[in-house]
Design a protein around this nucleic acid. Structure first.
Lengths: 308, 308
DNA sequence: AATCTATATGTAGGCTAACTACATGGAGAT
DNA sequence: ATCTCCATGTAGTTAGCCTACATATAGATT
């Protein structure tokens, strides 16, 4: 029995098809099929059987996959202990991030890692809150966010670390009538033209909350994903929008004002599967992200004082 | 990290030198040395360091070896569960045995295994009681014996199964004055010429007990290892000897008489390391040995009735 | 002191086996 | 009926594990 076989069984259990596992591990389905038959020959037991267009684990395969989950995690922990006892963290760490959070977190991270033996492999995506958890199959650390609390929906069983809590402010054109106010209430902004995000995208939950609170509905003139594009349109006077405070850089023509009366912040969170989090390098990167997140909060706490 | 590396570290911890591990695993020391460096490179940590003529595990190596022990045992148990759930026991089982016990246990065992997918790899040795435990490094099952109790000395941490308790009888020439008696006491036999075994060999503990009990010393005319040779010399009239009842086949010129007043029996025991015992095939063979041992006791219980 | 022996390591080459590319086959979906 | 997705089979390439042999070192032996 080889680790490679345990890995394969676990991945099949997680992803369902050989093709999916092959894509995730940068191999061909043929290679996996051959490995599977090697494992079956060595164990003397059928592990998968055809089902619909794909395959399904047999009872024995299921058993093995569950045991593999446990064993691979123990191996990861052992390896982490060994590294911690006698070595510096090393190796590649795959980070998946939503772009707005990555924009402020990753440059300082790369800076901090320059002197270490840790390499970062980066991926970005812009997805719904409940899909962040699934990304932990591919990445060691997923930087996501939650609008509803400190742990994104669907992240049970994952290690979830809050990096920072970022206020979501109302972005206004500099010459907007409300730009003179220090903070804004739902009633202040319900009548404005809004630049929103697509349905089901995390940020949308706050305009929705405003609508519920005031009993009136918001006029969304356009729905966009990219915050920088939104920012440009706000500056140009198309409407107001909700933008994360840390990511929205000072820019001519746009001002940010805190929104009161609704919980307008997102928790930026790092998610990892337990086995991946066992790696020393992964924990080291998470630790650095927490520090960067803390610095970010502190810096912007000062900013606000200046503006106020 | 590969299972092969965990195995290697564990074996180094157990056997101390690369040469010993190489001999046990049928490889060259060079191969192991290369594997060690591969593991060190992958982990980024030194695992061994030169010490005296050989090597010694570093702190990290020690840690890894201990963790490997645990993980490899879990893998073995998982594999056993899978086999049990969907397959018949399979594969090679290495048995080390002391010849006298193997002589009666193994023929019926081979018979019982003929219909299965279990192959037996056999080794035999004639060693002191406290050395049986060490043999479990090489064999899946060690058939040994204990004169002092049900578990041989040095077998702590091993799985020990009593296969049978075999009386040790006094073997006499057919025409010996004492041959007419149904049983013999220490006083009866203390004055005879004895054919003994070498010092520290298990059987020697009983003549020693007789000497202690009677306060007189036994006259050993010769010390031999091989029971069949002893038997031949008894038949020829050289003296009396202590012989195991089940193994000493009916033979012209020799009679066996029970010895009373001292505990004259040996426990025949199967020993296995826990990780090896996890294999279904190993447990199956152990189970068969227990059955064969029980049959043996019953058969000879009848024998004695006949003779008495 | 010189030699011997046990142990580990380095190098070159052979062989196994894991992988890729490509082709085939089957089962749902359109 | 065709298309699409998924698994499997075949041939050839390649990586890496192992052996054989040579070398280095430290303790044991004479």
């Amino acid at each position: 029995m080889e680790i490679r076989h345990l890995d394969l069984l676990r991945d099949i259990a997680r992803r369902g098809t050989l093709t999916a596992v092959a894509a995730a591990t940068h191999r061909t389905p043929s290679a996996l099929s051959q490995q599977l038959r090697t494992a079956e020959r060595e164990l003397g037991v059928k592990l998968v059987e055809p089902a619909s267009r794909g395959i399904r684990l047999t009872a024995a395969g299921q058993l093995l996959a569950e045991g593999a989950e446990d064993i691979l995690q123990r191996i990861a922990r052992l390896q982490a202990r060994v590294e911690a006892s006698a070595g510096a963290p090393r190796g590649q760490v795959r980070i998946g991030t939503l772009p707005s959070a990555g924009e402020v977190l990753l440059p300082p991270l790369m800076d901090a890692l320059a002197a270490t033996a840790i390499q970062i492999d980066l991926d970005d995506f812009d997805i719904a809150e409940e899909d962040f958890a699934a990304q932990t199959l591919d990445a060691d650390i997923v930087i996501g966010h939650s609008l509803t609390g400190d742990v994104p929906t669907g992240a049970s069983g994952l290690i979830s670390t809050v990096l920072t809590r970022e206020p979501l402010d109302i972005a206004l054109p500099q010459d907007h009538p409300l730009a003179g106010r220090l903070s804004l209430s739902p009633e202040d902004v319900i009548g404005c033209d809004w630049i929103g995000v697509p349905h089901r995208y995390p940020f949308d939950s706050i305009p929705v909350a405003i609508e519920q609170l005031t009993g009136r509905s918001i006029r969304r003139v356009v729905r966009l994903r990219d915050n920088h594009l939104v920012e440009a349109l706000v500056a140009q006077g198309q409407g107001v929008a909700l933008l994360p405070r840390f990511t929205t850089r000072a820019r001519d023509g746009v001002v940010l004002r805190p929104l009161t009366g609704v919980r307008a912040e997102r928790a930026i969170v790092a998610l990892s599967r337990p086995d991946r989090h066992a790696r020393l390098a992964v924990r080291e990167v998470t630790k650095l992200l927490v520090e960067i997140g803390r610095d970010l909060s502190e810096t912007h706490a000062h900013d606000r004082h200046h503006r106020a």
